[in-house]
């Protein structure tokens, strides 16, 4: 026993940092590489969650951590997994989470869309209060390309280049059953507002002044001539009317960004997630494998035959 201890002491003495195999320059050791590229999901909390940004973080081992544009350009690729009218899912390979997050943030908050901003209520006898109604209208997505419009700044007159006007006039006759007002009742007014401003002195000669000053009909603009502007979905419930109730209003949609109000956000939500990797610490075989497979409700695991001999 004693001898053995001595032996160990010897080996300790002999141990020298220089005897270790050389770390190949320009390559990170495995554990650092793991830290750099993976977030580990532990039982209580994930670890190594922060990516290493500093370009000289691994300078001592001769690894350049800087983000190089040409390198990124050569290695980055996007694969669209699913693309439907409402949904898009794509893989971005060779990108840092921070940049993916930037895309996400831009999608949510900085892409402009058109949304109803101003509601002029002529009559509203429904149970839905004016401001609630206006709020609901604001959240209705409008199927139009915002690139054809300009922002409406404070001093601008609403005109055909920055405002879309919709009209909603629904009434429920007395004695008839309740009706549901849906978004397809919103009618596009290509010639701008039809409501006359009260305060203007009504000269017989001049056209009465309305809340918008359109110089021409939006229908004459080639982009809208073929496909008229309408809410994206025709079946969004706006209000319900009982017998004898009526809603008459005009809604003015303008261009805006999700940062100002969520109604201008072009996406319901956008998110990214990191590519998941499940590492089995040991090989799982036979019944255990079956059990493992059945344990996961989203079918992550599959069993493959071991090629024996």
């Amino acid at each position: 026993m004693a001898g053995q201890e001595e032996e160990r002491g010897d080996t300790k003495k002999k141990f020298s940092i220089f005897d270790l195999p050389d770390v190949p320059m320009g390559q990170l050791p495995d554990h650092l590489q793991l830290h750099r590229t993976r977030v580990l999901c532990n039982n209580d909390a994930p670890i190594h969650t922060e990516s290493v940004q500093y370009s000289g973080a691994y300078a001592t081992v001769g690894v350049d951590n800087s983000l190089r544009f040409d390198h990124f350009r050569n290695n980055f690729r996007v694969e669209v997994v699913r693309l439907t009218e409402e949904d898009m899912e794509f893989d971005m390979v060779g990108i840092d989470a921070a940049i993916a997050n930037a895309f996400r943030r831009i999608l949510i908050a900085e892409l402009p869309t058109m949304a109803i901003e101003k509601v002029l209520i002529a009559n509203n006898t429904s149970v839905v209060q004016d401001e609630v109604l206006a709020h609901r209208l604001g959240l209705i997505p409008i199927g139009v390309d915002p690139r054809h419009f300009e922002y409406l700044s404070e001093n601008d007159q609403p005109n055909e280049r920055n405002t879309i006007v919709f009209k909603l006039h629904v009434s429920c006759k007395r004695g008839s059953p309740r009706i549901t007002v849906k978004s397809d009742e919103l009618k596009w007014l290509p010639n701008g507002s039809e409501l006359v401003k009260e305060s203007t002195p009504s000269d017989s000669a001049s056209k009465p002044e309305t809340y918008t000053s359109f110089s021409c009909s939006q229908e004459t603009i080639p982009e809208f001539a073929k496909n008229p502007i309408a809410p994206k979905y025709p079946d969004i419930i706006i209000a319900k009317l009982g017998p004898g109730q009526e809603i008459e209003l005009e809604a003015h949609a303008v261009k805006g960004k999700g940062k100002t109000h969520a109604k201008w956000s072009p996406v319901a939500t956008a998110w990214y997630r990191m590519f998941p990797e499940v590492v089995l610490l040991e090989e799982v075989e036979d019944d255990l494998a079956e059990e493992l497979k059945s344990k996961c409700p989203v079918d992550v695991f599959d069993i493959e035959d071991l090629g024996k001999g």
Binding site: P46, T49, E50, S51, A98, W271, V298
Partner: peptide, 22 residues
Amino acid sequence: KHGFSYNGKDFLYSGSAAYALS
């Protein structure tokens, strides 16, 4: 059954910085 953790915990990503929270 619906693919969540039994204890209700979820893996969250930070919205402002690019790291994960949980």
